[in-house]
C-alpha cells in the first residue's frame, strides 16, 4: 500500500502539479508548434506518451545497472580488475549522451514498427514522430529518473520510472490539448494586431502556467487524505 501511494503521488505530481510543460517549461516546441488543432495535438500527445514510456524504461535500466553511483556492473568490473573496493565508481557523466542516444534509437525503432504494423497511425503522425527525438520533455523525464537513482535513500524501481513517464506523457497531452482547444477558439477572436500569432499564444501559455500553479500542495493533501482513509 505504501508503494501504491507513492506511485499515485508520482503520477499526479508529474501529470498535474509539476506538469512538464506548464511547470517546468520543457517540451515547449511541440506545445506551441502542434497545438493548432485538437486532433493533431492529441495525436502528438499520444506519441510522446508512448515514446516517453519506452525511453524511461530503457534509461532506467541503463541508469540502474551502469550509470548511477555504485551501479552493479562497473563496481563488479572494478573489483574484478583488482581495484580498491572503497572507491565509488560513478559513470553519471555519461547520462546525457546515453539518454539522447537511447531516445533517438527508440524513436527510430518505434517509427519503423508503426510504419509496418500501423500504417494509418504512421500517416497521421506524419513528421511528428521523428520530431519527438528532440522533445526535451523526454530527456527531462530521464533526468528525473537519474536524480532519483543517485540518491540511495529513495532508489526508484522500474515501476516508479514508468509511472513518472506515463504521468509526464498524460500531463503533456493534457497541456497540449488544452492549448489546442483554446487556440481553435482563438481563430474566431478579434486579437489585437500586434499580438496575433506567436504573441497571443505565448500569453495564453503563461496564463495556463499560472493556473497550474494553483495545484501546488495538492500532493500533500492527497497524502493526508489517503492516510486518513487508511487509518
Amino acid at each position: 500500500m505504501e508503494s501504491l501511494t507513492l506511485l499515485l503521488q508520482i503520477f499526479v505530481g508529474a501529470a498535474i502539479i509539476n506538469n512538464f510543460v506548464l511547470h517546468y517549461f520543457v517540451g515547449i516546441c511541440p506545445f506551441l508548434g502542434v497545438s493548432r488543432r485538437v486532433d493533431m495535438a492529441f495525436g502528438m500527445g499520444c506519441a510522446v506518451t508512448f515514446v516517453i514510456s519506452i525511453a524511461a524504461l530503457l534509461s532506467w535500466t541503463f541508469t540502474f545497472y551502469l550509470l548511477r553511483p555504485d551501479a552493479p556492473l562497473p563496481t563488479w568490473l572494478w573489483q574484478r580488475l583488482g581495484g580498491d573496493p572503497s572507491v565509488r565508481i560513478d559513470l553519471s557523466v555519461l547520462s546525457y549522451i546515453m539518454y539522447i542516444f537511447v531516445i533517438a534509437s527508440s524513436v527510430q525503432f518505434v517509427e519503423m514498427y508503426v510504419r509496418k504494423f500501423a500504417p494509418k497511425l504512421h500517416k497521421s503522425f506524419g513528421v511528428f514522430l521523428p520530431l519527438i527525438t528532440t522533445n526535451c520533455a523526454i530527456l527531462f523525464a530521464c533526468l528525473i529518473i537519474l536524480r532519483n537513482l543517485q540518491d540511495p535513500a529513495q532508489l526508484w524501481g522500474p515501476a516508479e520510472a514508468l509511472t513518472l513517464a506515463l504521468g509526464g506523457g498524460v500531463g503533456f497531452t493534457l497541456a497540449i490539448c488544452l492549448m489546442a482547444g483554446i487556440r481553435e477558439e482563438l481563430e474566431l477572436c478579434d486579437v489585437p494586431r500586434p499580438l496575433r500569432g506567436a504573441g497571443i499564444t505565448l500569453i495564453i501559455a503563461g496564463i495556463l502556467a499560472m493556473a497550474v500553479m494553483g495545484f501546488a500542495g495538492v500532493d500533500q493533501n492527497l497524502q493526508d487524505a489517503i492516510d486518513a482513509f487508511l487509518n
Binding site: 551502469l66 562497473p74 572507491v87 565508481i89 559513470l91 557523466v93 555519461l94 546515453m98 542516444f101 537511447v102
Partner: peptide
C-alpha cells in the same frame, strides 16, 4: 579510477552504439 571510468565509459558507449 579516472582511467577506469574513462575507458569503461568509452566502451559502454561503443557497445551501446553497436547494439543499437
Amino acid at each position: 579510477t579516472a582511467a577506469f571510468t574513462l575507458i569503461l565509459g568509452a566502451a559502454a558507449l561503443l557497445l551501446l552504439a553497436v547494439a543499437m
